[in-house]
């Protein structure tokens, strides 16, 4: 995300989901506050739809361990987030939620090269990392999910996984 093809870096968890709403525990109520504290993106929840893919700059989700910063996107049924890197705890939270966060170190090059633009229709294979830009008929690559991430994603997150292990 960003204007004129420049990705915003270091989007922190305070910008993604502000402290003022941390008391909210219901997933469906969280979406309306997603990116509410990020300059120029306050209207994001009204503009996004299910399956949308968010492209962001490095260190997305830096900072606090608050899980609402992941859950707010699940609430909006965001498809996945692709960034060159993520805040460490943010990445864990997303993996554990079964929400696809995907790394792509070459993201800035793809955008600078015009291979990826806001509004493009893209498909990504999370197992192989193969990406297709259907709008521009271009192929690209991201890092595929590792084994742990894929296993948790497949069952719908740590919770379903823990329930399953409990039964086994």
């Amino acid at each position: 995300m960003g204007k004129k093809g420049r990705l915003i870096e270091d989007i922190d968890t305070d910008q993604i989901f502000h402290n003022a709403f941390l008391h909210i525990t219901e997933l469906r109520q969280m979406g309306q506050y997603a990116l509410g504290n990020l300059e120029g993106w306050k209207d994001f929840p009204g503009k996004t739809g299910p399956g949308d893919i968010i492209i962001a700059g490095r260190n997305f989700g830096a900072g606090s361990s608050r899980q609402q910063a992941v859950d707010c996107f699940k609430s909006l049924q965001t498809g996945m987030i692709i960034a060159p890197s993520f805040g460490a705890i943010y990445f864990r939270n997303a993996v554990n939620s079964g929400f696809p966060v995907m790394k792509c170190s070459k993201l800035a090059d793809l955008i600078a090269g015009g291979l990826l633009k806001s509004g493009d229709k893209i498909r990504v294979n999370i197992r192989t990392g193969e990406g297709q830009n259907q709008t521009r008929k271009e192929a690209f690559f991201i890092e595929p999910m590792n084994e742990v991430q894929y296993n948790l994603w497949e069952v719908g997150g740590l919770f379903s996984y823990a329930k399953k292990t409990k039964k086994d």
Binding site: S65, V70, R92, G157, A162
Partner: peptide
């Protein structure tokens, strides 16, 4: 809590994790 890293001051391995994980660790 993200600042769980603090206890490394005493030679512990300490790290912040998320909420769901805590609930899961409580159970498993």
């Amino acid at each position: 809590d993200s600042h769980t890293t603090s206890y490394g001051a005493f030679g512990a391995f300490s790290a912040g994790i998320g909420r769901s994980e805590v609930a899961s660790v409580w159970a498993t």
